[in-house]
């Protein structure tokens, strides 16, 4: 088994199911001492509030010590090689290093140089494996199994690390995945694609709406967010009374990605995802550090 989590593929199905067993227990929000005496370093080269807090809470609930290194600007931009960055962090003796970076592939490269476990908390538009796992966990808690379920992913898929991780996991767990968005946002992929949100919602058992990644666009792709929302906002009119689950990795652009009315609807699992996120990250930390 992998010592690191840089990509969802690092974990096989059994690993994932074991993590989910832990996570189910951890939903009780009780403090434990499973990781007492372990140091976990959160190093975020890119701003993040919720993912970093989620990891910090997860580590603390397991009794670990947590240090947050805030690196506003990437030290690689100051000329430090990735080897130096990794060696310096590793020398502090952590059991795990949680890394977020705006450049794709950085956690993977760091993992080659360190003794501790590297956990990818999002790297560019590449991967966000812990978000993928918590999305999978959330759906499995609702459905028990993903086999044959229909999941539509809507939005800026091409620039979304969440979509990359979700797609890998959902297809591995035998769900059908449909990519929904304007041509601007659809990747080169063999999965089915559509521009028609109405039809996609009629087809789907769950919809994952994504945040439009305006910060990852070097050129304008849509005239405005509203112009995008015109065709791709999840609204009550579209979901009607259908038995469907609505998810979003957050932060949500209200009334762009999802309407206020849908966000308040009980079929919308956004806050449940956040709650599950802590438990799943606890499971991941325990799994990687104890093994």
């Amino acid at each position: 088994m992998s010592k690191h989590l840089t990509h969802t593929k690092d974990f096989n199905k059994d690993d994932i199911l074991r993590i989910f067993t832990y996570a189910n227990e951890y939903l009780d929000k009780k403090k434990r001492d499973d990781l007492k005496g372990h140091l976990i370093i959160n190093v975020f080269f890119e701003n993040s509030t919720r993912t970093r807090s989620s990891f910090e809470i997860a580590a603390k609930r397991l009794g670990a010590d947590v240090v947050n290194l805030d690196v506003a600007r990437s030290s690689t931009a100051k000329g430090e090689t990735l080897f130096d960055t990794a060696a310096n962090l590793d020398a502090m003796g952590p059991s795990a290093i949680v890394v977020r970076h705006n450049r794709a592939g950085v956690p993977k490269i760091l993992s080659k140089y360190v003794k501790s476990s590297i956990i990818n908390a999002g790297d560019g538009a590449h991967q966000h494996p812990t978000q993928g796992l918590l999305d999978l966990f959330t759906l499995m808690r609702k459905w028990g199994d993903l086999k044959g379920k229909k999941i539509a992913i809507v939005g800026d898929i091409r620039n979304s690390r969440v979509a990359n991780s979700d797609i890998e996991l959902f297809t591995r767990f035998q769900a059908e995945v449909l990519l929904v968005g304007p041509p601007h946002f659809l990747p080169k992929s063999s999965l089915p694609k559509t521009h028609n949100l109405k039809e996609a919602i009629e087809w789907a058992d769950a919809v994952i709406s994504l945040r439009t990644q305006t910060e990852r666009h070097s050129q304008p792709s849509f005239a405005s967010l509203q112009d995008y929302a015109e065709n791709f906002q999840i609204t009550k009119d579209l979901i009607k009374d259908k038995n469907i689950l609505i998810m979003h990795p957050g932060p949500v652009h209200r009334n762009i990605d999802i309407s206020d009315e849908v966000l308040a609807d009980e079929r919308c699992l956004v806050l449940e995802q956040v709650k599950n996120g802590v438990a799943v990250r606890m499971g991941i930390l325990k799994f990687l550090i104890e093994n």
Binding site: A104, G105, D123, H126, R158, R161, N164, K188, S189, S190
Partner: peptide
């Protein structure tokens, strides 16, 4: 597809 898989 490789570029997409790598997020590049």
């Amino acid at each position: 597809p490789r570029a997409y898989a790598l997020g590049l």
